[in-house]
Write a protein that binds this DNA or RNA. Structure first.
Lengths: 187, 187
DNA sequence: AGTGCCATCTTGTCAATGGCAAGATAGGAT
DNA sequence: ATCCTATCTTGCCATTGACAAGATGGCACT
């Protein structure tokens, strides 16, 4: 199936995306090279162009894949907003390559309809979790604002974690550290 | 002073950094080209190497400049944590190029001592603002955790804003939108 | 089975880039 | 006046992204 023998690879598109995840995990998205991906997949340097057009095309496909993965992850985390938030951070750490591309629109075609659709799916799950929250003490909290605050704190923590900007005392377990920080929203 | 005539530019280092800010503002940090900066400054393609060594060296200098700018901005915002948070977001929007580089450690030498020092200066101001807060209702909030939550929500909002990921209904005034979201931490 | 079609992949090429080496220039120190 | 060193230049090479043209082979249709 994944045998690469023969003139036709058989599953080159997937192989290139996998290679991209691997390469980005090693050196970040800035250092990504299409020719390197082709070498990893064992094909000629121009093969990627047929499937993705250009570099931005490949990263666009990776972003779509990432937003779909994120939507699934959030759904699987259950109805609880805290759990969804922790899952968001966990996704960023476990699928670092996808995450690092998804929120860097200068790297790919963010206006691509497939990207927008996948992105909306993920955002919808997050909004659902916020809407499912019991009303806060103070009374009518704007759900739009609450969703924005939840998204911001979770996205910020994930980003800072990936950037290595957090102090060592935060520890090395992103899930636990995120849980503590997110809970701050409910106290 | 900034006259570029003659063999020696006179202020090439600053001119290159300024050009980098301009170029990143146009096309993002991924598309940055040293040769383009040299052209903008009116010097030969190898001139930047003398001042910064390589591309990472230039971006390292830009990150240092950015963290110092941020520290100053936060200081000028006053003692209030809310004001500091709004200033953080405002900095990200107004100095987008610096901000986009600062938190992308794969682009520069994040372990450079100058970077660490400047980064610590900015982080110190933020921690001070959190420490200056009156204790919360619930009693003893861990100031470390509170600082992390504040930094996360502010950084996340700024990042999402820059990525263009926020829905249109947030509006077009980052300061006002940030104020609303940050206040969520105090209710 | 035979035939033609077309997606897939290859080879070849070009301009642009980053980085290195060696040389030219100038402004200041002695 | 001379040297000296930081600054800038020219020249070069490997790598990359993108494009063009050709090779290959699976697949539909007869």
């Amino acid at each position: 199936m994944t045998q690469t023998r023969g003139y036709h690879h058989g599953d080159l598109r997937r192989a290139l995306l996998d290679a991209a995840v691997e390469a980005i995990g090693e050196s970040g998205p800035a250092a990504l090279s299409l020719r390197d991906l082709a070498r990893r997949a064992g094909v000629s340097h121009a093969a990627p162009a047929h499937h993705f057009g250009d570099k931005a095309g490949l990263l666009t496909a990776l972003a779509v894949q990432g937003f779909d993965l994120l939507a699934g992850t959030l759904r699987d985390a259950g109805d609880d907003l805290l759990a969804a938030g922790v899952a968001y951070v966990d996704f960023a750490v476990r699928h670092r390559a996808h995450f690092e591309v998804m929120f860097r629109p200068d790297l790919y075609r963010a206006h691509d309809p497939e990207v927008r659709a996948a992105s909306d799916r993920a955002g919808g799950v997050l909004r659902d979790r916020v809407a499912g929250l019991p009303a806060r003490d103070g009374g009518a909290g704007d759900p739009g604002r609450d969703a924005l605050a939840a998204w911001s704190i979770v996205h910020g923590f994930a980003t800072l974690w990936l950037a290595g900007a957090l102090p060592p005392r935060v520890g090395d377990d992103p899930r636990e550290a995120a849980r503590v920080v997110i809970r701050r929203l409910f106290e």
